[in-house]
Design a binder for these strands. Structure first.
Length: 228
DNA sequence: CTCCAGGATA
DNA sequence: TATCCCGGAG
C-alpha cells in the first residue's frame, strides 16, 4: 500500500476520535438540547424555511401567528394568498421571499406527493435530499434540517457555526464547501439520526454561546484545546 | 451598529 | 464573487 494512502487512513481514524471527543465534550457540558422545538413535522418544515439567516425567537413569533390564525397546515398555506402569508410571518424577516418559499414548498408537496407529507418524508434519504433541493428556497441546510428533524433520517446538518467551529479547530480548511463539511461528519460518524440531531443542536448552542464570529469566548469554551 | 437554525440571483 | 432580502435583539 502507498504511504500517502496509509496516512489518509490514519488521519481519518484520528479525526473520527476527535469528532467523538468534540461531541462528548459538548454533551457533557450542555446536555441534550431537545431539538427540534415543534409540535409537528410540518411545523419543523415551516420553521426550517423561516429561520434562514434569522434568529429563532423571531421565527417563534411567526409560527405563533400562523397557529393563532389556524393556518399552520399544508392546505391552508397552499391556498392562502401570498400577501396574507407574508403579513403573518413578518416577524421572521425577509417575509416576502419566505412567503414565496413556503408557497413553492407547498406546490412541490401537492404536485409531487398529492399533499401527502408522510409520503414525501418517507422517501429514501438520498432521493429525498435531491427532491428537496429542487424546491426554490430550499438550499442544503434547509433540506438537511427537514430530512433530519422532520423525516428523522440521518442527514448531517451544516451551518455557519459548524463551519466556524471546525475551522477554528483546524479540522477543515477555511473555504470548505457545505457538502465537504457534511461528508466530513458522515464519513466518520455512525449514520444515526439521534446522534446527528444532538450533534447539530450542540454545535449551534456552542456557536452562539462561545464561538461567536467576533469576540469568541475560547477560554471558557468546553472545546478549548481540542485538536491543539 | 452587528448578528441571526440561508438562499437566489447576476 | 457581491448583493439583496428584512425584522428584532443586544
Amino acid at each position: 500500500m502507498e504511504k500517502t494512502r496509509v496516512l489518509e487512513i490514519e488521519t481519518m481514524s484520528i479525526n473520527k476520535q476527535i469528532l467523538l471527543e468534540l461531541y462528548d465534550r459538548l454533551f457533557e457540558a450542555f446536555g441534550p438540547r431537545r431539538w427540534w422545538p415543534a409540535e409537528s413535522r410540518f411545523e419543523v418544515i415551516v420553521g426550517a424555511i423561516l429561520t434562514q439567516n434569522t434568529a429563532w425567537r423571531n421565527v417563534e413569533k411567526s409560527i405563533a401567528q400562523l397557529k393563532a390564525k389556524n393556518v399552520l397546515s399544508p392546505e391552508s398555506i397552499y391556498n392562502m394568498p401570498v400577501k396574507e402569508l407574508a403579513a403573518l410571518i413578518r416577524p421572521a424577516g425577509y417575509y416576502n421571499i419566505k412567503a414565496e418559499r413556503l408557497k413553492s414548498f407547498m406546490r412541490f408537496l401537492y404536485n409531487g406527493y398529492g399533499g401527502n407529507l408522510n409520503r414525501l418524508l418517507g422517501t429514501e434519504m438520498a432521493s429525498l435530499r435531491k427532491e428537496l433541493l429542487t424546491v426554490k428556497g430550499v438550499g442544503p441546510e434547509t433540506a438537511d434540517s427537514i430530512i433530519l428533524y422532520a423525516a428523522e433520517q440521518p442527514s448531517f446538518v451544516v451551518d455557519t457555526y459548524t463551519n466556524r467551529i471546525l475551522y477554528r479547530h483546524h479540522l477543515i480548511p477555511d473555504d470548505a464547501s457545505y457538502d465537504i463539511i457534511r461528508d466530513f461528519f458522515m464519513d466518520r460518524l455512525p449514520q444515526n439520526t439521534a446522534l446527528y440531531n444532538e450533534y447539530h443542536a450542540l454545535l449551534v448552542y456552542t456557536g452562539k454561546t462561545f464561538c461567536s464570529k467576533t469576540k469568541p469566548k475560547c477560554l471558557q469554551c468546553p472545546l478549548q484545546g481540542l485538536n491543539q
